[in-house]
């Protein structure tokens, strides 16, 4: 929840009290989520739905940021993990009649196995290919979802998946929001742990300079592989949250458009900071809702945003704003 959690690098040996301050910040973050959820649930069902969506997409975007922002692997097939988890969990409960506690882990496992297969192929190639090959592989899954109607329901997808029962059924929009908020908080904390671990540090090194990492003794492809498995796991969690939100999964959960959207969310924040990806997801969902209420040309607007970001803010919106702000402050300082 707090950008300062991201500020590695500036750490000097801290006195004891900072450990406590970190706990305080963490508590503040959790309290923030609780407040937002509470506020939303008093406002009626539309804001609740919107916030639930924001949290799910934020989780999804953060998982992609592990690859794009931290490891420097631009993936355009991230919807594959989101969709596979949702389809697998849905199939488990529909065809095999498994309960939530079995279906959900199976779905996550399916996402991780998909990531393993994809990356054993995609990581063999040079970095420039990664975007292209992940796109091609994800497109294959989408195509199977559309054409294998017996299994996947084709374009109609799979519907009628009941929400999990935790103590009581999570049927109401507000009670499901609580569930998603909990899942989000736990996942986000886990991801923060990952990026601040020795492993996360190694990922940043690979992003910055892979040959040097190899010269230092890192078998870099192993790190890239594990990073993609972890990213797939969290993307899968987001996918299942989405599945139980709608009680439905269709080919759009595997589509390139979704991969492109989540990549744009990462860019609309700041690649390489989980917090930024979260903000990006929130901005994206709100923007999409506003634009769609005025025009049908959302796809065009999204394309235009991509073009603008590529030209002017390839590192993301937050770094761009920070730079503007610094320049503005300098010019003001220079005048006085």
């Amino acid at each position: 929840m707090n950008p300062h959690l991201e500020a590695t690098g500036t750490r000097v040996r801290r006195p004891l009290w900072t450990d406590r301050s970190r706990t305080i910040r963490l508590l503040a973050a959790v309290a923030g989520i609780v407040l937002v959820v509470l506020a939303a649930s008093t406002l009626g069902s539309y804001p609740v739905e919107l916030i639930t969506q924001v949290l799910i997409y934020a989780l999804f975007a953060m998982s992609l940021d592990l690859l794009v922002g931290y490891t420097g692997l631009p993936s355009l097939g991230h919807s594959a993990y989101f969709g596979v988890a949702a389809y697998a969990a849905a199939l488990c409960s529909l065809k095999l009649g498994l309960p939530f506690w079995c279906a959900a882990p199976v779905g996550l496992l399916a996402a991780v196995v998909t990531a393993l297969l994809f990356n054993l192929i995609a990581l063999r190639t040079a970095r420039g290919y990664y975007l292209m090959i992940t796109l091609a592989l994800a497109q294959v899954l989408w195509s199977i979802a559309v054409s294998w109607t017996d299994l996947t329901g084709g374009d109609n997808g799979l519907s009628g998946i009941a929400r999990p029962v935790i103590g009581r059924p999570l049927e109401g929009a507000a009670s499901y929001l609580w569930f998603v908020a909990l899942v989000f908080t736990v996942s986000a904390m886990a991801m923060w742990r990952i990026v601040r671990s020795p492993f996360g540090q190694a990922l940043k090194g690979i992003r910055e300079n892979e040959p040097r990492m190899r010269a230092l003794g890192y078998e870099t492809w192993r790190y890239k592989l594990v990073a993609s498995l972890l990213a797939a796991l969290f993307a899968g969690i987001a996918g299942e949250c989405f599945l139980y939100l709608n009680g439905f999964v269709g080919p759009s959960s595997l589509a390139v458009a979704l991969s492109a959207q989540v990549l744009l969310m990462v860019l609309m924040g700041a690649a390489g900071t989980l917090f930024g990806s979260m903000i990006g997801a929130a901005v994206f969902v709100v923007l999409q809702n506003i634009v769609s209420s005025y025009t049908d040309r959302w796809l065009f607007v999204m394309g235009a945003i991509y073009v603008l970001f590529a030209l002017y803010a390839p590192a993301g919106a937050l770094p761009w704003l920070r730079e503007r702000w610094a320049r503005y402050r300098n010019s003001v300082g220079g005048n006085t």
Binding site: T8, R11, R14, R193, I194, R196, S197, P198, F199, G200, Q201, A202, M213, L216, G217, Y218, R222, Y223, V226, L230
Partner: peptide, 15 residues
């Protein structure tokens, strides 16, 4: 950490 056994750990923070 390049040659330290902890380099692959992603559960604990560096500190």
């Amino acid at each position: 950490q390049a040659l330290d056994p902890c380099r692959f750990s992603f559960v604990r923070t560096i500190e």
